[in-house]
Structure formats: C-alpha cells, structure tokens
C-alpha cells in the first residue's frame, strides 16, 4: 500500500496553511511533528477528505482518494483532537453506533474485542461523560479501529493525558502498527520518540524533514551542547534563548543548548535526543537560522 501526497497545497484568503507537501508513505507509524499552527491538522483533514486542498492530490495505490468515496472511507480510521462523542451515551453505545456507521458485519463481537483491547471492557456500561481524559482517548482509538483501517489518522491523540495514559497509548499504537499506515500529528516529542518509524517535521505549512528518528537524531550530532552553569544564570539565559533548556543532575545544573556553533568556551558536546531535533528546527529565536532547506 502506497499513500502519496503529490504537491499538496492549501491556501486561505490571506494565509498559506500548506505549501507543496510531497510525501510517500508505506506501512508504518509516521509522526507529524510541528508546533501549533504548522499545518498538521490541515494536513490531517485533507487526508481524511474533510477539507479540500487548493493544489495537488493524494493517491492511494494510484487512485485519487477524493474520488474513492466509500471505498476509501472503508479503510480509513480517523480520530480528531476532540471527537465530540455523546456525553449521555455509554461507551458501549458509542462503539455500537460507530460500528453501524462503519458497516461492521459483527458489531457486538468487534466492539467487545476492541473494548478489551483498550482496557475499557469493565467501563463500557458507564456514560461517556463519566470517563476520564485517558478513557475518552482510548475509546476514541477503539472507535477509529472498528473497521480495522489500513490508514489510521490520529490528531493530537495524547493531548491532556497523564504520563501513565501516554504510555498506555504508545503501547496500543505499537501493537497495531505493523500492517497499517498510522499518521500521528503531535507536538509532543516523547509520544512518538519510541514508536515512530519516520518523523515528518512540518513548519509553516512546509515539510522540512522526513526521516527516521535515529537518522534525525544522528543529524544533530555536534549540535547539542552542555554547559555547567549556576542555576540563576541558566534561568536568565533560557528566558532569552529558546534553543536552550536547563538540565539538572544531582546538585549541578547544566544549560543544554541546541546550536550549530559552540555556545560557550566551556561547553561540550552531548548525546542528542529527538526532542533536541524539535528544539533545533522549531527554535523561534532564529539563532540557528531557517532549516527549511536542510536535507539530511
């Protein structure tokens, strides 16, 4: 299965939300990473056929998805940021309603299995409004998996979840990712660091990087610096420099800076992580310049 974004563009009257986005996706987990307003949700909505692009087309194995209609929706799973389920419905009812909408042949059996898969079987009789944030998210994932989709779109799936629920979410996604194209739009790096096969960095509507997490991290070697510093001095520094953050280790405090050049004479290189990639590419201070044209 091959999902191809061919020069996708989306323009509003005074704003360009997406520009010349070209991607070639196969089975695997893809993380769409970018700050708020980068165009992630726009891209998700175009892929879910909810929004019409201004330019380009998306094809699935050569067929334009907008012309595929029901055939495309039959293999699509979509979980928006806020699915807006019905507060007075029980979890089970929500599953059954969407099972009918997705034309599932044995809805009761499928619903039961998925509720067990997301660990909600015991809470399926409770009303949706009584669910915690994590339970709501897990139910959303279960709903999006009802039709065993080949393409699964998750828009900010971990927003508002506590660390335990985040881990649970990552476990669920890694279990199902082998035979699907899963696209996760997020700005939380830790959510996708360990599960994504590829990370697509989106900035101002453009794809600035598209590679595996390890290669992205490798590319950062020689750009992440640690400097031992007094805590107050480090605090003052990070207020003015968004490419830096404070790292504490025992009694000592360090300033971690993501920059092409050595920031201080006594700075030394350290092992980069995926979050450093995010800091490097989405730094607003401009110290590292615009990396839109950087290709690994």
């Amino acid at each position: 299965m091959e999902l191809v974004f061919d020069k996708i563009g989306k323009r509003y009257k005074n704003k360009t939300a997406l520009e010349d986005v070209s991607l070639d996706l196969n089975y695997g987990i893809y993380a769409l990473l970018g700050p708020n307003g980068a165009g992630k949700s726009t891209m998700m909505n175009i892929l879910a056929c909810l929004l019409k692009q201004t330019e380009g087309r998306i094809t699935l194995d050569g067929s334009d998805i907008s012309a595929m209609g029901k055939e495309y929706r039959n293999i699509l799973g979509y979980l928006p940021q806020d699915p807006g389920f019905y507060p007075n419905f029980r979890g089970y009812d929500i599953m059954m309603y969407f099972a009918r909408l997705k034309n599932i042949k044995d809805p009761k059996d499928k619903t039961q299995k998925l509720l067990e898969f997301v660990n909600l079987a015991d809470d399926s009789k409770r009303k949706y409004k009584e669910y915690s944030g994590g339970m709501k998210r897990r139910l959303g994932i279960a709903v999006s998996l009802l039709n065993d989709p080949k393409i699964l779109i998750l828009d900010e799936p971990t927003a508002g979840l506590d660390p335990k629920e985040r881990i649970r979410f990552r476990n669920i996604i890694s279990k199902i990712g082998s035979d699907k194209i899963i696209i996760i739009a997020t700005h939380i790096v830790s959510d996708i660091e360990t599960i994504a096969d590829r990370v697509i960095l989106l900035k101002d509507g453009k794809v600035i990087q598209n590679d595996s997490p390890s290669e992205l991290v490798d590319h950062m070697r020689g750009k992440v610096w640690l400097t031992e510093m007094e805590l107050t001095a480090a605090q003052d520094h990070v207020l003015e420099h968004t490419d830096s953050n404070i790292v504490k280790s025992g009694d000592k405090s360090y300033l971690k800076t993501v920059r092409d050049e050595k920031p201080f004479p006594d700075s030394y290189e350290c092992e980069p992580r995926l979050e450093d990639v995010y800091t490097y590419y989405f730094d607003e201070s401009g110290v590292n310049g615009d990396h839109a044209d950087d290709k690994i």
């Binding site: 909810l50 979509y78 699915p83 807006g84 019905y86 909408l101 709903v143």
Partner: peptide, 20 residues
Amino acid sequence: EYSSGSRCMILTAYKGKVSA
C-alpha cells in the same frame, strides 16, 4: 454534531455521508 465536532468522525465512516 457540528458544535461537538463529532461530524468529522461520522463523515469519515463508511456510511457517514449519505446514510447518516
């Protein structure tokens, strides 16, 4: 459905456009 945002989920379902 519009105000809650559930329209998006319904519309991406097999029967979400016409049948729903």
